[in-house]
Amino acid sequence: MAERAAPGLLARWHRARRADGLALRRALPDRLLPLLVAAMAVLAALALAGATGAAILSARWSAGAASLLTIQVPDPDAPAASPPSTRADAVLAALADTPGASRVHRLDKAELAALLAPWLGQATEFALTLPAIIELHMAAETGAETGADPDAASLARRLATVAPGTLVERNAEWGARLGRLADSLHGCALLAVAIVAGIAVVLIAATTRAGLAARRMPIELIHAMGASDGYIAGRFARRTALLAFVGGLAGSVAALPLLVLLSRVAAPFAQAAPSPAPASPADWATLLALLRDTLPTPLIVTLLALAPAAATIGWLTTQATVRAWLRTLP
């Protein structure tokens, strides 16, 4: 007789675990829940990508714009207030003494033409005299830390003495607006992640309740025989956590191509041009290197955390659902 033969240790352990009558494979089938969790994971991955992207854009725009002042000098070639230098040269000389300035750059003709191309086309000669455009880059540590925060108004007053009519525009104001926009996008993306997590909780709770209803008789029986709430809830929770982990993993993998595509589209706004994609990834190492180069590190980390997070949500939700259900028993 089969039972009289002594089976291996692992086989006996497995047998003891599944022989309590709960039949969790039937209570919580191994297809529906992972599929639903995978769909949730794809949505969560996209929302997280949005959150990560918005955070990166916010940081870049804020940092970039805050450190730049744009100065317009009308009639740049006219003599300055103190000849023999021109107005543009006088402004450049004055800017060289600005505390915290890391770079002073006057846009040349080609750069000006490129700047005006959207409005004037690819012209190289203009009928009107264009103002000189000077970019004043401040050092990264400039600001509250050094006490040398560039004050556009005082700088404009100083430059007006050497070249009257010079305009100073502080890009930080635009940077702050863009930063607020990016922060809003970041918040919306996090809200979307929270909603997806909430839906996952509701979904797992409903699936668990269906499983409890399907296995009511054996649950009541082993409860009456002394199975603790912790034992029954633990058996259900481990099963749900496993299924949610599988679903989360599948969803993360399914979301990868979309995320790579989105990252490549967003790359020009966030960083230097992405590395070119190989025509066909030769091996896993190449593929991993491509992912590492394409996806921002925070997004890779959150993607790796999706499956464990899904498992944790599944475990906690099932524990709470089963324990609440068991409270209806004496």
């Binding site: 002394g226 199975a227 603790s228 709430d229």
Partner: peptide, 8 residues
């Protein structure tokens, strides 16, 4: 509840 389970 845990004590009742042990008793059962």
């Amino acid at each position: 509840r845990a004590a009742l389970a042990r008793l059962r």
